[in-house]
Design a protein around this nucleic acid. Structure first.
Lengths: 237, 237, 237, 237
DNA sequence: GATGAATGAGTTTTCATTCAT
DNA sequence: GATGAATGAAAACTCATTCAT
């Protein structure tokens, strides 16, 4: 087993562990879940600071005090929201990555997963992007560590691609990861803020092309098939 | 004068107008400026919601009421912080762009300007990235309009590059802009949060390469000089 | 059943409904009542605007926040003060009116009730006269509607008196009502402001005479033409 | 000269002194007058406590500090508003009373003066009725003393009427005065609050009749015993 | 006299959290 | 575990008044 594959497998194992912690379907009879679901809705809608615990309690149909049975304080409740999702997302990505060969193909799939999951879980995404990410505490939280596993997976795939010759050897994997995640995020913000619908499929294409071939004049050098998949590179004669 | 140059000039004219509004000397005797300076420091340090107006007043050495002589409310004060900077930054970029030819060279310079300005104005950057950008009101503010001019400048340069054949014709300029800004932002976040020092020069290189040539195996296709500038494209024999 | 009696009964029915809403025992253990009682005392003493919510809280021996559990804001608390009293007063008047025959006798009783209740509830009276009545919002409040029922009762009695021939036919019932209420109020103001004790019994007499026979020399006969203009005075034989 | 006439003259002399202090036409160039005029407008419109000194300054087109050159504080400014008016009103009444004979005719004229002046000076009336009268300080103020002179004039006229046999001998002049002023005030309040227009002429009639002959059936004869108790009613043949 | 920027004490109101039941 | 009434410590904002110019 080649070295890089082993490493990738390690990352995947960790991600799997996260995925394993997933409570797949929220039981609405479970108070804890009801509270988290309400928190997600309202935090996403009004922002952390402008949401009151009373509102969440009302929405969850529990007493205010009950919230403090399950969560030490308001911020803990905020951090509880992504927990389930991160496990679920890890699962989702690992599932979709199955059977895909090639670093670029995997990255393309990850871009699709990312945008697709965002689109289908706007409240979660809003909370991650607009509330949690701006909190310094986040970067010491377990949530961040779990997200780090995902980020490491991307880096592993890039490293694997470099080893396989599919990706240029002098590329800095961390920068590429930042490029992938940063681009997705930057593209996403307007529709997070304005609740716009976006055409995922076109976006995956555009983002993938941009990331894979950068600004290089494509028609001169790169062969791209109809699906936008890089199939080869030619001198445009 | 070619069409695209004219358009670029239009954008530059708008940016210049913003730059013209700059109050260059932040005179510490000027109360308004003292208040803004204090706000910048504390908002950056503790976040908007966890900063009290009293704290800012103390730091600015004015009475609490004085703040309300100059700003209608706390949020107005928040938005006053970037105002000066945006004008200053516009100036900075336009100055550095002088005499540079070629879309890629201009973009590289913009990446440098961006990272460099961020590094030298961390508090401003933190406030923009972590506080203002997540506020829906921002997207209707004058601050946003000013930043839009900058964003438009990037798009103009990309469009110009496409016209000149320096950039592939099928690239979506908006995505590229998102890629540039998103990558820079994503790269920046750790040192915004952890106050880490970073080697700008290496970063400009890495980011530029990532953006310009994407993941394509360079040694096979692209000729890049030592500065990372794309000088030609060959079939790697 | 004669028509006017029926109308009077209607008014009485409405007044009774108000009276039915009365919370008769102002249990001092009940926080809401304690707050209202404190508000009554302090609003009466210092006026609405010069009373602070903190003062009321202190006096009621509750936390400031507790007040906002029961009342939406300071003004709501002000309006809560007369609510109980109006119901109580309605009860009081209806009770005392029982068995009395004749419009003038009823009006005399009402004058007595009014002055007597005022004397026994000075704080309430001060708040009604000096605080609430000057607020335009009052005239759209439920408090006003309840008071209107009382005012209507007076008009009904006057109308009834006219029908029965006990009261002159060309009298304007609304003016008479204003005369009754206005006189009482004007007489009351000095002892509201200066906390003077007054001899209710003499006052009821004096006010009743003034209202019933005006300035006419008693035992004389007034000649009044159809327009109500005084045309002459005869010595009654 | 009869005794009562002498007393009346004394009262008139005092009132005249007040009237003499009148500054008859406000010079808009005079800052003091401009400030008072602005205060009158805004106090009437929004109430004392909800008016800010800054607003008055703006309306008067003077600096905030200038107000404190002329008035010790906000409340002093409030009390300055009626000062001019009371002198003017005293003048107005004394003028209109000239040549009128008979207590009832004089009272009727005073009722007319009162209502008429109120109608033509709504802002002043609002301030007197809704702001000043509820303030305990008022009853120790010079404003109150001046108004007292007016009130005394009414009592003098009533006393004179009793002496002349035009008014019943057992009437309490203070009560009658309260009846006159109270009725007018009670009638006025709705149009003060709602800015309604009212038909003064009809009102003077109605109020005069109500006050002069009370509830007695006109063209009937009231039998009243020495205590003023109504003992019977005769149809005047 | 006139100004208006500066003040800071004071007010209402909010809300996370607690705790007796 | 569950409740929700009670808390009281803030916090934003206001405004009468002052005073240096």
């Amino acid at each position: 087993m080649p070295d890089n594959t082993k490493k990738l497998n390690d990352v995947q194992k960790n991600l799997s562990r996260v995925a394993g912690g997933l409570k797949p379907n929220r039981d609405p009879a479970d108070k804890r879940e009801r509270i988290i679901a309400a928190a997600e809705r309202i935090f996403a809608q009004k922002g952390y600071f402008e949401t009151t615990v009373a509102e969440i309690a009302r929405d969850a149909q529990v007493a205010e005090g009950t919230i403090y049975e399950y969560f030490a304080n308001k911020k803990d409740l905020l951090y509880a929201v992504p927990e389930n999702y991160l496990a679920d997302y890890a699962n989702f990505v690992l599932d979709h990555l199955q059977g895909i060969k090639g670093a670029l193909n995997k990255l393309r799939k990850i871009i699709w997963c990312h945008l697709s999951y965002f689109r289908n879980h706007k409240d979660f995404t809003k909370i991650m992007t607009l509330e949690i990410r701006i909190d310094p505490d986040y970067y010491r939280s377990k949530t961040y560590e779990n997200l780090k596993l995902y980020s490491d997976l991307i880096i592993q795939i890039i490293t694997e691609g470099i080893k396989d010759g599919e990706i240029g050897p002098h590329v800095n994997p961390h920068i590429i990861r930042d490029m992938i995640l940063g681009t997705i995020e930057h593209v996403s913000i307007p529709w997070l803020v304005f609740d716009r619908e976006i055409p995922i499929d076109n976006l995956v294409e555009d983002v993938s092309i941009a990331i894979f071939i950068g600004l290089a004049p494509r028609e001169k050098v790169l062969k791209v098939n109809l699906n936008g998949l890089l199939t080869g590179i030619d001198v445009k004669e």
